[in-house]
């Protein structure tokens, strides 16, 4: 009998210990990043680091602005491309598609979500880069001259640019957003839809006035989760975005997002003073931002699920 109780206690103990260790990993990573990025924050003001636009490590100038601007632009553009398409796709799946269609599409979405990001990157290099440089950029130069941000700066683009990065990124986050948004919309009580249909509403009116309104918090969460995924995505974007350390002025300019900066440079030229610390500060910024977005999205999702369960 004593042995059983002892085993019970031991088992509980090590299971708890392992779980706590796993959770502590996040904290350890954060602590390491903070510790290693302290030297650069001590030498430079945070304002100068985040706001400075000069990136000349050899001269001790570490302005993160181009990278932050690049990250934000690539992400925002990708979301602008992905969100409308994804929400409509999710509405179709949840409200219009037959069960048989759903049964095929849902697993397909999971497969899409599982495609390694380097494959998306290759797809971008092989297909999208030529498409953008040979067709989209010349077309924009001819027809969108009135919009400086939508035309290539010298009437020409290599194709390795903000737009290509955003398209690749949009393709990557789409399955995630569709999948969550679909799940959220399926959480709208059937009886609530029927209440709307029963007074003579059409399907679309029911979607617009009832389902989407009821599911709004969850839909927002799906978008925010997609956003945070896009924000930290490294490989696919790095392969097509151009990686030039300047703030992009147009869709067809190259950009240099934070994750690409870290991945391209960490481990090289480490003898430059503070270089290592600067890159780790970049990582810290990235981690804090993504973590904040994830927490926000999870919070909203919890609320949405609770409402759906009522």
């Amino acid at each position: 009998m004593r042995l059983r109780i002892l085993t019970e206690r031991l088992t509980t103990g090590w299971i708890v210990a392992i779980s706590v260790t796993v959770m502590l990993l996040t904290a350890v990573v954060a602590a390491a990043l903070v510790h290693r990025s302290l030297p650069i924050v001590e030498g430079h003001s945070l304002g100068a680091l985040l706001g400075g636009s000069e990136w000349r490590p050899l001269e001790g100038k570490f302005g993160f602005r181009p990278f932050i601007v690049g990250t934000v632009w690539v992400t925002v553009l990708a979301m602008a491309l992905a969100v409308p398409v994804c929400l409509l796709a999710a509405i179709y799946l949840a409200e219009y598609a037959r069960d048989a269609t759903r049964a095929i599409v849902r697993p397909l979405l999971d497969v899409l979500a599982g495609i390694p990001s380097v494959v998306h990157g290759l797809f971008g290099v092989l297909l999208l880069v030529p498409l953008v440089s040979d067709h989209l950029a010349p077309w924009a130069a001819r027809h969108l001259a009135c919009l400086p941000g939508a035309t290539p700066q010298q009437g020409y683009s290599t194709g390795y640019c903000l737009l290509t990065g955003a398209i690749v990124l949009a393709m990557m986050v789409a399955p995630v957003i569709i999948s969550i948004a679909d799940e959220v919309l399926r959480g709208v009580p059937v009886a609530m839809r029927e209440a709307s249909l029963a007074v003579g509403a059409t399907r679309w009116e029911t979607v617009k006035h009832v389902s989407v309104r009821f599911a709004a918090p969850g839909l927002v969460a799906s978008v925010v989760l997609g956003f945070s995924r896009a924000f930290g995505e490294t490989m696919a974007v790095l392969m097509v975005v151009g990686n030039v350390a300047m703030s992009p002025k147009s869709l067809f300019d190259p950009a240099y997002p934070l994750p690409a900066l870290i991945a391209n440079n960490y481990g090289e030229m480490m003898s430059i003073p503070l270089y290592d610390s600067a890159l780790l500060l970049a990582a810290l910024i990235l981690m804090v931002t993504v973590l904040a977005f994830n927490l926000l999205a999870q919070g909203v999702l919890v609320v949405a699920r609770r409402r759906a369960a009522q």
């Binding site: 009886a191 609530m192 029963a198 007074v199 003579g200 009832v210």
Partner: peptide
């Protein structure tokens, strides 16, 4: 269906207030 359902009012088992 629209005019049919307009003609046939429904009161369901569990009240379903619309989210408004």
């Amino acid at each position: 269906l629209i005019s049919l359902r307009k003609k046939m009012g429904l009161l369901s088992q569990k009240p379903q207030a619309l989210p408004m």
